[in-house]
Amino acid sequence: MQQDDVVEPRVPVKDELKKRTVKGPDGFEFEVDPIHDYYCDARPEVRPGSYLKIVEDLFNWARSESLWILGFGTGCGAIEMRPLMTPRFDAYRYGIQWRPTPRQANLFVISGYLSVKTLKRVIRSYEQMQNPKYVVGLGSCTVNGGMYWDSYNTIKKLDEYLPVDVYVTGCMPRPEALLAGFEELKRIIRAGKGEGANLYAKNFDWYKANQKRVIHDWDMPDYNW
């Protein structure tokens, strides 16, 4: 893994994203910087768990029994999640629910191949989720590229861009396999090993360098909550 080759964006920043001065309707002039995040652009920090082990164990149990999935289908595997919501498989029985906003979700299912364009949105969505958060890679495409291994426009190993907790392999895996993956994730969380968010914060520079190597038009904050 070379880390030194690309950091500079190769595509020039779009005009509408450049810093500029805007005159309001009342004649008041102010500066606008679309790429700057006004709320929080601080680097992520490693957040330790609760001081008492018994409290952290209780929270981990609650986290494992209340997995809220971000409703963001990145690839063809998103179609495998629909049967989970409906009577045939009914994942709600296992405390798994879907949320439409990254703020409330804590599980990101990367459903299948990830094009570079989508990776950008995935990174922003992932960073807006709150610690602790988990990532499940669905399908072989997330492991090694799968049938897209020689595509010019998809990433091969998801693990280089986001910390992955569980892989569910197959092309495509059936909904049962996804359910088995969620059960495995629950075991990982209960054992206190679901610390992807802290891993991301700890190796932040490495992840950012990897992300910027494939995303050439990087026109967003380095980190945004």
């Binding site: 709320y39 929080c40 929270f59 804590n106």
Partner: peptide, 10 residues
């Protein structure tokens, strides 16, 4: 319990 136990909020 899970929502009260999340480690970050903004």
């Amino acid at each position: 319990l899970k929502n009260y136990g999340l480690r970050t909020n903004i």
